[in-house]
Design a protein around this nucleic acid. Sequence first.
RNA 1: GCCGGAGUGGCGGAAUGGCAGACGCGCCGGAUUCAAAAUCCGGUACCCCCUAAAGGUGUGUGGGUUCAAGUCCCUCCUCCGGCACCA
Length: 1053
Amino acid sequence: MSSQPGTSQYGADRPHPFRYTAQIADEIERRWQATWEERSAFCQPNPGEAGFDASRPKYYCLDMFPYPSGAGLHVGHPEGYTATDIMSRYRRMTGHNVLHPMGWDAFGLPAEQYAIQTGIHPAITTRQAIDNFRRQLKRFGFSYDWSREFGTIDEGYYRWTQWIFLRLFDSWFDPAHGRARPIGELVSALERGRVAVNTFGEVVAIPTGSQAITGSVVGVRMWHELSDDERGALIDTYRLAYRSETTVNWCPKLGTVLANDEVIEGRSERGGHPVVRKPLSQWAFRITAYAERLLKQLDSLEWPASTKTMQREWIGRSEGAEIDFAIDGTDQSLRVFTTRPDTLFGATYMVIAPEHPLVQMVIEGAGPHAAAVADYAARTRRRSDVERQESREKTGVFTGLRAINPATGQAVPVWTAEYVLMGYGTGAIMAVPAHDERDFEFAQAHGLPMRDVVYQPPVFAMRYFALHSYPEGAVEEGWRERLADFVGISVTGAPAKPAAERLRRVFQQRAAAPDQVCEVGPMGSRRGVTQRVWLEVIEDLHVSDFGALRREFEAGMYHASHDGALAEAGIAANSTNADISLDGMHSADAKEAVLAWLEAKGLGARKVNFRLRDWVFSRQRYWGEPFPIVYDAGGRAYPVGESHLPVKLPALADYAPVESEDPMPLLAKAQDWVKTTAGDAGVAPSLLAPETPVWRETNTMPGSAGSSWYAIRYCDALNPGRFVGREAEAYWMAGGVDLYVGGSEHAVGHLLYSRFWQNVLFDLGEVTTPEPFRRLFHQGLITSFAYQRKDKTLVPVDQVSEPSEGAFVETATGAPVSQIVAKMSKSLKNVVNPDEVIAEFGADTFRLYEMYMGPLEASKPWNPRDIAGLFRFLQRLWRLAVDEETGKPRTSADPSANIEKLLHRLVVKVGADIDRLSLNTAIAAAIEFVNACVGVDKGMGALTSDQIRRLALTLCPFVPHIAEELWARHGGAGFASHQPWPQVDARLLVDDEVEVPVQVAGKVRSRVMVPAGADAGTHERVALADARVQEFIAGKPVRKVIVVPGKMVNVVL
RNA sequence: GCCGGAGUGGCGGAAUGGCAGACGCGCCGGAUUCAAAAUCCGGUACCCCCUAAAGGUGUGUGGGUUCAAGUCCCUCCUCCGGCACCA
């Protein structure tokens, strides 16, 4: 492929000096791009600035900003960017103030890794990459307001990223109000004694009024009783940004922390060095506090359903209860979370996570089980999450502890096992093996008891029969048939929930007289048939005799012997104690009943749990935002004062990680920078005396820091005094970003984190809207052809040729290879470079091709063969308006009324399609229109200049350069891009007569013309009068005629 | 395993429950050309047929709802994406 414009086959233009060719496209495009830039055509003023038109509605159209990689743009980037450009240009034309910015997500690992190899500062390579990206993007003619451009690495930007971090550091989540508040308000509440601290370190309200506590509440301490250190530590545990101990994969040899998938069998993927799991103190955000809101607010968003689902599942809300089990022989209790409190009577053992504090206690207690427990805990700690996933073997050891099941009063063993995760719920479970698959497997593996407490209705009936029908010891012939009949009668037609009530009635009627249950019913009867079905089921149980069945139910071992765990809802059984009986209740009711009992007894409470974990925010890397935090000698964290922001990255002599046994962030190498004083760091003197020695935080922020709020910054990108001007934010962010386009790979990460920051800033009154992105759209992946040999190995694209149609061979060997569609990647050598495509066809053709490939959201293969079709379309468009021999504008002296009508319809169709981002169909409509014009052209010109100008405006969002050119050549003043969207005459959108297909017996047999707006009767008359229709009716009686006016007539015979 | 999404000509794809295959590519035929490329015009789902008319078949599979199903419901198959011991 050529990289010079005009040297391709599409540039050979000698016979037609003014044909639309790659050279002409190149010339036009560069000229208009320069003109737009010169006149700041797409600079959008903010409210209050010169040129701002307050009468227009706003439209904020945003792309996910790119990471500027050294490799430059690939064809996937402009896909979304073209779509948003079309939308932005269209909205400008329909009278909106449009905010359409672009910038750079520029901190990140690749630049740092390059720096390690070359010693070049990442800032230098990143700036170069940005310059290259900007150059490439500008060549597409995107209508970005470049005056708002910034990168996350700009001091003027990350200063505010640090500032937002401090706002989170300085806030806590008040569960009573469900929102973030300044930490100072918590402190003053504590000082005023309205709240206190209980033994769990939880802040609790102190009741006020007449029964005010006279002495100190047991287990509750007042603020004034705490030492300074205790106060500080307590406050820290409430901050939205807090430090937490997290286990990381540390590779001493590489000197870096590795992600789980970079560790293979305890060794680093790169180099195979040993990796150890080490605890590390890291910054985290209390995003879990916002779980409920992040979940609920999803409903209000116009997002792809799949993305909402992914976020919902990621947040993972589940309702259940927390229940306390007393630990036998101690005054301690073990708290568990369960979604099935109704199965409490079936809890026959407990399991705690190996990281559970109780495990440590057992080890320290040095009892007979301590050694085994310690060994198991140590073993599991060494295993990474990935390894744990690979082997799902249910390992575990007995801790020696016993807990009292509060419902049964039974002492049950407490085990520790890695299938229980410390990070979810309380890190401890009540195991109900009969009703949980995992508990069942574990119980089987370790010989733990099981107890049925829920049955499906037929089994419940079976149990009733087994326990009540025959006297003890009597074993009768034909019990299977009778049982089958009983089950059939009991449950036939019973919907799941009322089954319990129904069963009770049936039992009352029948159980008293089991001998009245009939023998095998007559085959013809419904009862007989039902009975036979159940008989099969019962025979499949392979129970030797009736006594055996009875014993299974007596022991509550039915599930253990037959189906395995029953995890679904059903009817409760074996669930009675002195206070309460759940027997016969449906699981949903049993849940309520047991919860009421637990709450009354103070043994448990309803609880909602989330799968979502707090957001670990530290990275042990260089190329990221430094934290505006310093530590004193005691390790307490202090915020850097606002006036001292940004905290800049220190220069390093080199970027190579240091070999070390203990995790050490790269910034620790900059000892001069790390060691400073409170005064130099800008810590408020009220917090720390200026001369106090302090040490800077050496972790840096992750990439998601800068990308979590950039949408806000674009509203007022250069504001030096605030992270965003209040007026600008209120205007542009009202209701959120109006259209946000980017890949679905960010469905949870970026899109959840941004929502979290936005919510916090909203709570703190810094922004005016709680959700950043109102409408979200994911563009599909652009794939590319790749070639594989018979053995499935891949052959680079440039080593494949196609000697005959559809047959591909490896050029070097001549061996046949098969064509597959795959993601573009360097290793497959199937990456398409947009610069080359633009050189061969121009940017307008490129834009058109990418939008025409298929639905924007679909993944679709890049096929170079297809591009020419769009280029030819632009050639035809051009030829309609410009004489290929003279270069003079072509116009029609005799405009066609039909063409005018089609033009109006095109304007409507294109507008509607842009609205729903159905850009491929909009382009198809435009092609159809141009083809229709070519049909009437006959070398004379088909359109008037006015029509050509309107056509140019209609196509301007898609192909702005050629549109500007045709607009100008046909006498348009100003930029086409600044014109209002063409007016539509509604009268031209309807025809006088419409053709309506006529079906006879559901098959289209003819078409008739009816006047527009004709009623059903007219349709019917005209249709039945049609000769072909009559032929098909052939004298048969017409039963019915269905008419959809203007659409269809169906004659039913 | 669970949860989404998608299966339509040779290819990319179009179709508020109402004419399946718009539009583009490719291919075939023609024009232009000394010739080729480029460009332009026409044809192009499949079967039957010399051709045309007429007819028949057809939207992954099998069933269902409906006057009417690519579209709605159920079964199964394949592919893609996400999650995965979450109590």
